[in-house]
Amino acid sequence: MGINVISISSLLLFLLIGIFVVDTDLAMQKKAEVKMLLELANHHATFAVDQVMKTEGVIELVEEEALTRFGDRMLENGGYRLERNNFVPAVTSVTTDPLPFVRYYVDFRSWRQDIDMRVRYDGRTLVLEQAVPGAVRADGGRLRIRVITERGEELELAPKTMVGPSHVVVAYVDERPFLPILPAHSFPVVSVEEVKH
C-alpha cells in the first residue's frame, strides 16, 4: 500500500513538472509568434510615407495611414481586429485575450537622439507615460523601453539603436492560463521599424 502511494505521488509530481514544461514552451512559442506578427505589421506600416515630403528629400510617416496598415496586417496574418488601443483576437489567433499596445513615432528630426520610453500596464490597457529625449549620437539614438506592470514590476526590454525615422510598437500579452494552477502568460513585446525610403 505504501509503495502504491509513493508511486502515485511520484507520478503526479512528474505529471505536474511536465505540465509546467509544456506551459513554459507554449508561452515561448506565443512570444515568438506575437513578435513575428508585430514585426510583419510594423514593416507594412512603415511604408505609409508622405509622398509630397519625400519628393523634397524628407522621409515622414503618415501616422493615421500607418496605423491602418498595421491593423490590416494584424488582421490578415493573425486574425486580430483593431479596437481602440487593443487587438482583439479571433478564435484562431495565437493569444486568447485582447492584446493592448502603444505606438510611438520617432521622426526625421529626432532619430539620432536617445529616447527613454516608459510604458505602464494597468491590467487592461497599455499607456505611454513618457518618452524622454537624451544624448545625440551620430550613428542613431538608442531606444530604451521600460514596461511597468500592474504589480509595479519594471521590465526593461533590450535597447535598440535607430538607423532612421522609426515606428515603435509595444504590446503586452497578458492572458489567463489554461489550468488554474499555472501562472498567466504575461510579457511585453516590441517592434522597432525604420520608415521606408
Results as ranks from 00 to 15, higher is better:
Leu126Trp: 04
Ala135Asn: 13
Pro165Gln: 07
Asp122Glu: 11
Pro133Met: 11
Leu99Thr: 03
Phe108Cys: 08
Arg137Val: 04
Gly141Tyr: 00
Arg118Gln: 15
Asp107Phe: 02
Leu157Ala: 07
Ser166Glu: 02
Glu153Gly: 07
Ala171Asn: 00
Leu157Trp: 04
His167Lys: 10
Ile148Cys: 05
Val119Pro: 00
Asp114Gln: 09
Ile145Ala: 01
Val170Phe: 02
Val173Glu: 02
Ala131Tyr: 01
Glu129Lys: 08
Val173Cys: 06
Gly134Phe: 07
Val163Thr: 15
Asp97Phe: 09
Asp107Leu: 05
Glu153Asp: 14
Val163Gly: 14
Asp174His: 09
Thr161Val: 13
Leu143Val: 06
Thr95Gly: 06
Val170Trp: 01
Arg118Val: 14
Arg176Tyr: 14
Phe108Gly: 03
Pro98Asp: 09
Ile145Gly: 00
Glu150Tyr: 12
Pro133Thr: 13
Glu129His: 07
Glu156Leu: 12
Gln130Ser: 15
Glu150Ile: 10
Thr149Glu: 11
Tyr105Trp: 10
Asp107His: 06
Gly152Ala: 10
Arg137Gly: 05
Val168Leu: 08
Gly164Ser: 01
Gln130His: 13
Ser110Phe: 10
Glu175Ala: 10
Tyr121Val: 02
Val132His: 08
Ile145Phe: 04
Asp122Arg: 07
Ala158Leu: 15
Arg146Leu: 08
Ala135Ser: 13
Glu156His: 07
Val169Gly: 00
Gly134Cys: 08
Phe101Leu: 06
Ala135Pro: 02
Leu128Gly: 06
Asp107Ala: 04
Leu128Asn: 08
Thr95Gln: 06
Ala171Lys: 00
Lys160His: 12
Arg146Ser: 14
Leu157His: 03
Pro98His: 03
Glu150Ala: 15
Gly164Phe: 06
Gly164Leu: 02
Lys160Val: 13
Thr96Cys: 09
Thr95Ser: 11
Thr161Phe: 12
Arg112Ile: 07
Ile115Gln: 11
His167Gly: 11
Gly140Ile: 03
Tyr104Val: 06
Leu155Phe: 07
Val136Gln: 14
Leu128Arg: 03
Tyr121Ile: 03
Gln130Asn: 15
Arg118Asp: 09
Ala138Val: 12
Asp122Val: 08
Ala171Trp: 02
Val170Leu: 05
Pro165Met: 04
